[in-house]
Amino acid sequence: MKPSVLIVDDSPAMRAFIRRVLELSGVVMSECYQAADGGEALAVLRRSPVDLVLTDINMPGINGEELVKLIHADEQLNSIPVVVVSTDATEQRVAALLRLGARGYVTKPFHPETLRADLEKVMEAADDRRCRG
C-alpha cells in the first residue's frame, strides 16, 4: 500500500526537509499533503484519507499539541498515527504528547536516518494494529 502522508509545520523549509527524508527513505507516497498549522491540517484530514501525520508543536493558531488532542478525540481520525517533530526535548513535553496520543516523537536537530528509523517503527506498529484490528 502506498501511504498518504501529511506534514504539518509552519516552516516551508522544514516541510521540504521532511518530505525529502521520506522520499529518500524509500517511502513511496500516494500523496504528500502539507499544512502550515493545525487548522490547515484538520481541513486536509477531513477531506482526504491520510495514513500518517508528522507535526511540529509550535505553530500559530491550532498548535501541534492541540492537533494531537483533536485527532485523538475524533473517532474518524484517531487511528491515524501521529509523529511529533519538535525542538522541545524536555521529558515532560515528550511524555505529555505521547499521553495525548502521539505514536512517536523526534527531537530536532535530527539526522535524516533517525527520522527514517522512527517512521519505520511507527508505520510497522500501525500495520500490526490494522492486521489485528
Binding site: A13, T87, D88, A89, T90, T107
Partner: peptide, 25 residues
Amino acid sequence: SEFANMVCGATLSVVAPHATLNLSY
C-alpha cells in the same frame, strides 16, 4: 528562521527542562 527556532528550542530544553514553553514564529 528554522535554524533560530532549533537552536532556541534545543538550548531551552537543556536549561529549563521542566518549563513548558511556547516559542513564537
